[in-house]
């Protein structure tokens, strides 16, 4: 199933081998480069540009030498906002992913470890929630919770929970009857210990793969929720939010107020998936 159980030296060589493979994949490298670019924008962007400074009497100016990407309705520099717009989504999406993975893993461990009525009941509930599209689920959660960075993390985390739980449950099922679990059971270890210290380390690889896949979805979902007005809130220069604020303008030819944000989102999600795909391929 994984490198667990191999001699340490062998594992390191395997690691190096994989890294070498990764570094030979142009798709992976391009993706990594784009991510690093946006991460550095998120970290240092606001030191260089001010996305909030308004110049209201110079609103909706087209791209020029002074404003490379033009200005929005409040006369704010679109270039500054696109650069600084990477920050919130790069904080919220990974946090939401981690929350979803943590909750889903916990639920999946319980479901897989206690077959019988516990698993039956929880499985039915998970199945019921999965009948709804992810976006509808997150949208309903945010309508109930109200929109803020914290609630977006919570809503997406909760929405990820059932699907992660299903993956983890399947992995636990195969591990549960293996010898090392039986041995630990004989030693009289508690259920909590068995789940947390025996089974969990052995199902980490599929969880890590799930994590990278979920991260892509999380970015997708955060951007979408912001576009619908229930995600990140003004005055955040978030890309999805900017498109939502400005798309009524496109009929008037103010294309620069949405185009660069759209391209920024596209570049980030594609990059994350190139990297995730590269990792998954090497892991196989």
């Amino acid at each position: 199933m994984s490198a667990v159980g191999l001699p340490a030296a062998r594992r390191t060589t395997l690691g190096f081998e994989r890294l070498r493979l990764l570094l030979r994949s142009p798709a992976f490298l391009v993706g990594l480069g784009i991510i690093l670019f946006w991460v550095s924008c998120a970290l240092f962007g606001r030191l260089l540009v001010d996305p909030l400074a308004d110049d209201i009497l110079n609103s909706l100016a087209p791209p020029s030498a002074e404003h490379w990407f033009g200005t929005d309705e409040l006369g704010r520099d679109m270039f500054a906002r696109v650069i600084a717009g990477s920050r919130d989504i790069l904080v919220v999406a990974p946090l939401a992913t981690l929350l979803g993975i943590a909750l889903g893993t916990a639920l999946g461990l319980v479901m897989g470890f206690f077959p019988g009525w516990v698993d039956d009941v929880l499985s039915r509930i998970v199945e019921a929630v999965l009948a709804l599209p992810l976006l509808i689920l997150a949208l309903l959660a945010l309508t109930a919770l109200g929109a803020s960075n914290a609630t977006v993390v919570a809503a997406i985390g909760l929405s990820f929970m059932p699907i992660v739980a299903r993956t983890v449950r399947a992995a636990v099922m195969t591990e549960r009857n293996l010898d090392y679990v039986a041995a630990a059971r004989l030693r009289g270890e508690s259920a909590l210990h068995l789940m947390g210290f025996e089974i969990l380390p052995n199902i980490l690889p599929p969880i890590v793969v799930e994590l990278t896949v979920r991260l892509g979805y999380a970015i997708f979902t955060v951007a979408t929720l912001s576009f619908l007005g229930v995600g990140l809130q003004p005055p955040s220069p978030d890309w999805g939010l900017a498109i939502s604020e400005n798309y009524a303008l496109i009929g008037g030819g103010y294309w620069w107020t949405v185009l660069f944000d759209a391209l920024a989102i596209a570049s980030l999600v594609i990059a994350v998936n190139l990297v995730a795909d590269g990792l998954a391929e090497v892991a196989e």
Binding site: L52, A53, I56, L74, P234, P235, E245
Partner: peptide
């Protein structure tokens, strides 16, 4: 209103 809020903030 959101835009007004941003201007007030500034």
């Amino acid at each position: 209103i959101p835009q007004y809020a941003v201007l007030l903030q500034n």
